[in-house]
Simulated assay, not measured.
Amino acid sequence: MSGVYKKIDVVGTSPVSFAEATRAAIEEAGRTVRHMSWFEVAEQRGAIKDGKVAEFQVTLRIGFKLE
């Protein structure tokens, strides 16, 4: 795995779960970022509305190889 890699931060959201927010963030990033190799969860948080969980939010660091 020699080479040079870059990391970017992205935030995914979902009304369903942290896992779904993670999938959404990776799929959306994959539309413009090539050679994605790994991700790490940097933060998890959510939004509350009327005393209930309204949204799950996850900040991911995605690593990809530079060309």
Rank of each mutant, 00 (worst) to 15 (best):
M1N: 11
M1V: 04
S2L: 14
S2N: 10
S2F: 12
G3P: 08
V4N: 13
V4P: 02
V4A: 11
V4G: 05
Y5P: 00
Y5I: 00
K6A: 10
K6L: 09
K6T: 11
K6D: 03
K7G: 12
K7C: 07
K7Y: 11
I8W: 10
I8R: 06
I8C: 07
I8N: 06
D9I: 09
D9P: 00
V10F: 04
V11N: 08
V11D: 09
V11L: 08
G12N: 07
G12P: 09
T13L: 09
T13N: 13
S14T: 12
S14H: 09
P15C: 03
P15T: 12
P15M: 05
P15S: 13
S17N: 02
S17R: 08
F18W: 11
A19M: 05
A19N: 11
E20F: 07
E20I: 09
A21M: 09
A21N: 07
A21L: 10
A21K: 07
T22Q: 12
T22M: 10
R23M: 11
R23F: 14
A24H: 08
A24L: 10
A25W: 01
A25C: 07
I26V: 15
I26H: 03
I26N: 03
E27K: 15
E27D: 11
E28R: 15
E28T: 12
E28K: 15
A29C: 09
A29H: 07
A29P: 04
A29L: 10
G30N: 01
G30H: 04
G30R: 05
R31L: 08
R31I: 01
R31T: 13
T32V: 07
T32Q: 02
R34M: 02
H35I: 01
H35Q: 11
H35L: 10
M36T: 08
S37R: 14
S37V: 11
S37W: 04
S37I: 14
W38M: 10
W38A: 13
W38E: 14
F39S: 11
F39A: 12
E40R: 15
E40D: 15
V41Y: 02
A42W: 04
E43Y: 06
E43M: 09
Q44N: 14
R45S: 15
R45V: 12
R45Y: 15
G46D: 00
G46P: 04
G46C: 00
A47F: 02
A47D: 13
A47S: 13
I48G: 05
I48F: 00
K49A: 15
K49S: 13
D50K: 11
G51T: 08
G51H: 02
G51Y: 10
G51A: 05
G51M: 00
K52I: 09
K52F: 10
V53M: 11
V53A: 03
V53Q: 06
A54I: 03
E55C: 03
E55Q: 12
E55K: 07
E55N: 01
E55R: 11
F56K: 03
F56N: 05
F56W: 15
F56M: 06
Q57L: 07
Q57F: 02
Q57S: 04
Q57C: 00
V58A: 06
V58T: 06
V58I: 08
T59Q: 12
T59S: 06
R61F: 09
R61W: 12
I62H: 03
I62V: 06
I62K: 03
G63L: 01
G63E: 03
G63P: 02
G63I: 00
F64T: 06
F64Y: 15
K65Q: 14
K65M: 14
K65I: 08
K65A: 13
L66F: 04
L66I: 13
E67H: 10
